[in-house]
């Protein structure tokens, strides 16, 4: 039986979408979209800086609105939807960030780490669990390790007390079979739920999400109009429509989520995400979508092809936080070009 389970929808429009506008969401925008998503029946609305709680900084970009105002505003405007946050240990600390967030009424905490570093989220997951919050572990750049290694990391998440694990396709690199294989493995081997967060670099975010659902994922992420950096995320209203067409129940009202997407387009976005050439390369090379802007800037500075930069970054398996390597790669390519090597 293919479509025998309900899909829970988590909507990070107001979190991952922040990347696309330099984290400049206002309280008014948050209130408007929260109301719309809530009325549509979305299960979880994720809110915050693009890199999550406590991430507002000079290096990552400063939020226009503080975490407490964003979360307080969202909470006031969500009646049935749960308020979710994205937490990367290191950016978000337990005392300074997590405790106040839970006090503000956050219901769902998603602790995100690089796919091979599950150990880093033990304290955050344990803390949230002990506070009675729903807590998930999320693996960023989950394509970078083998399915078997991913399962080993997921077992850690399970042992720490998380209620589920989410595979994030941070660079939009997966093909549907890749997703299916990983989700099925975890579905069979773990006692916790599995979720999937797609990016659309190669136009496969919807197909990958459906593959995840077919393989047993019970939580799917989607952003209105795909609002997110670069090629954007799984487009939420399309995802709802396709899930409905395929036969999954989501509890989301199609017309209302279409309305919410229209509202998001007008209220939140400067431009709708499109799959630009460099996004395709980012997806193919398996490099974090958030590198698009720095790669474009640095490639221009060194007069090298940003696509070459991406493929070299992919070859070196560079991850978020290693932005300095972009400079090194661009410089190296420029030097080699000057010598006539490429």
């Amino acid at each position: 039986m293919r479509h025998n389970h309900k899909i829970r929808i988590s909507d990070p429009t107001l979190r991952d979408g922040s990347h696309a506008i330099g984290h400049q969401l206002s309280a008014k925008q948050i209130a408007a979209y929260c109301q719309a998503a809530d009325q549509a029946g979305v299960s979880i609305v994720e809110v915050g800086h693009g890199n999550g709680l406590g991430a507002s900084s000079l290096q990552l970009g400063e939020s226009k609105t503080t975490d407490s105002v964003m979360l307080g505003t969202a909470k006031k405007n969500l009646r049935s939807a749960k308020l979710g946050i994205h937490v990367i240990p290191g950016f978000a600390t337990i005392e300074r960030d997590l405790k106040p967030a839970l006090d503000l009424g956050v219901d769902v905490v998603r602790v995100a780490v690089h796919c091979s570093e599950a150990d880093l989220c033990e304290r955050h997951i344990s803390f949230c669990r002990n506070q009675g919050a729903e807590v998930w572990g999320c693996f960023m750049m989950s394509h970078m390790i083998s399915p078997v290694m991913l399962l080993e990391q997921a077992r850690k998440i399970e042992s720490y007390g998380a209620e589920g694990v989410v595979f994030m396709d941070s660079s939009g690199h997966y093909l549907p079979d890749d997703v299916r294989q990983r989700v099925e493995m975890c579905r069979d081997e773990l006692s916790i739920a599995v979720g999937f967060h797609g990016h659309n670099n190669m136009g496969l975010a919807i197909a990958n999400s459906i593959a995840a659902a077919d393989a047993g994922a019970t939580l799917l992420d989607g952003c209105a109009r795909g609002f997110g950096a670069g090629a954007g995320n799984t487009q939420l209203e399309v995802l709802i429509a396709v899930l409905e067409r395929v036969g999954y129940s989501t509890g989301v009202d199609l017309y209302k989520i279409l309305d919410a997407a229209d509202l998001a387009e007008h209220v939140l976005m400067k431009e709708i995400p499109v799959i630009r050439s460099v996004s395709v390369v980012s997806g193919l090379s398996g490099v974090f979508s958030g590198f698009l802007k720095p790669v474009a800037r640095i490639a221009k500075e060194f007069d090298v092809d940003p696509r070459d930069v991406f493929f070299e970054l992919g070859r070196r398996k560079i991850v978020a936080g290693q932005e300095d390597i972009i400079l090194e790669v661009a410089k190296d390519l420029a030097t080699r070009a000057a010598k006539g090597a490429i």
């Binding site: 025998n4 389970h5 309900k6 829970r8 729903e134 998930w136 209620e163 589920g164 579905r187 069979d188 006692s191 916790i192 739920a193 599995v194 047993g216 994922a217 019970t218 939580l219």
Partner: peptide
């Protein structure tokens, strides 16, 4: 079912 699973393998 705080985080429902798709397959009910009874342990």
């Amino acid at each position: 079912n705080t985080a429902p699973r798709s397959v009910g393998r009874v342990s």
